[in-house]
């Protein structure tokens, strides 16, 4: 097995605490109420938000607040081995935990009896797609004018060999010892998404959480930048 980490450098030349390149653009789709396109390492995802709109089916509507629907979907060509179209169990789980992560941040009580739909399409996948998707979704929601107490920023950290590292790349995710994707509300640092699988001692888990949180803060800066820059292009025209 080729070494994932040698002399403090990872296979893609990153340092342990270094994130892959991330860029986000807000307001990229015409028909959606809000949208965002995101590139993170080789990941390419696009998020679209619709609503608040009439709740369908009606019987699931809530008279106290809007309900959220989140659909994480991978395009068949997004991965090496063609992924059959349609929801699979992994996508369903990711959709669920992502929706729950956002519910904590959105102010839904302004819109009784409505629904807000969030669709994220993974166009190209390279490890960390759920963090990329949730990050894009949060920008798309802001772009759609949906009120939130705070944004939601996501990032993963994990362990490869004996080292805790930030933002696992594909090969690292496959061969590594543990992967911990998280999402936080940046102001408070409260964790709204947390999953882990692998082998970590409590100390390593704590270290991984701290590192992932730092990653989330960097992600949050990019989200802010994307929204600020949405109208900046118009200046000087």
């Amino acid at each position: 097995m080729t070494e994932l980490i040698k002399n403090g450098k990872r296979q893609d030349d990153r340092k342990p605490e270094e994130m892959r390149d991330l860029s986000i653009e807000a307001g990229v789709l015409k028909r959606a109420d809000g949208s965002a396109y995101l590139e993170w390492g080789s990941n390419k995802v696009i998020a679209g938000v619709f609503g608040p709109q009439k709740c369908i089916p009606q019987h699931i509507s809530n008279p106290y607040k809007a309900i959220l629907k989140f659909r994480y979907n991978m395009a068949p060509f997004s991965v090496d081995d063609r992924k059959r179209p349609g929801p699979d169990r992994r996508s369903t789980e990711i959709s669920k935990v992502s929706k729950e992560a956002l519910e904590s941040a959105l102010i839904l009580r302004h819109f009784p009896n409505t629904m807000i739909e969030i669709f994220v399409e993974v166009l190209q996948a390279a490890a960390g797609t759920r963090c990329a998707s949730l990050t894009a979704a949060s920008v798309a929601l802001a772009d759609a004018g949906v009120p939130m107490k705070d944004m939601v920023a996501a990032c993963a950290a994990g362990k490869i060999g004996d080292e805790v590292v930030l933002d696992l790349a594909k090969e690292e995710d496959n061969a590594g010892k543990a992967d911990v994707p998280i999402a936080i509300k940046p102001k408070s640092g409260d964790i709204v998404l947390l999953q882990m699988d692998g082998d970590l001692t409590p100390e390593e888990f704590d270290e991984t959480l701290s590192l992932a949180k730092e990653g989330c803060m960097k992600v949050s800066e990019e989200q802010q930048k994307a929204l600020q820059e949405k109208y900046e292009m118009e200046e000087g025209e």
């Binding site: 109420d33 709109q53 802001a142 759609a144 004018g145 949906v146 009120p147 939130m148 949405k230 109208y231």
Partner: peptide, 26 residues
């Protein structure tokens, strides 16, 4: 005082307001 939305900050009579840059009509 915290903003709820993506919008433009304005101030009048000591009130901090944010005008949303999008969103469905309420």
């Amino acid at each position: 005082i915290v903003s709820e939305v993506f919008g433009v900050l304005t101030e009048s009579n000591n009130y901090m307001n944010v005008n949303p840059l999008g969103g469905r009509y309420i």
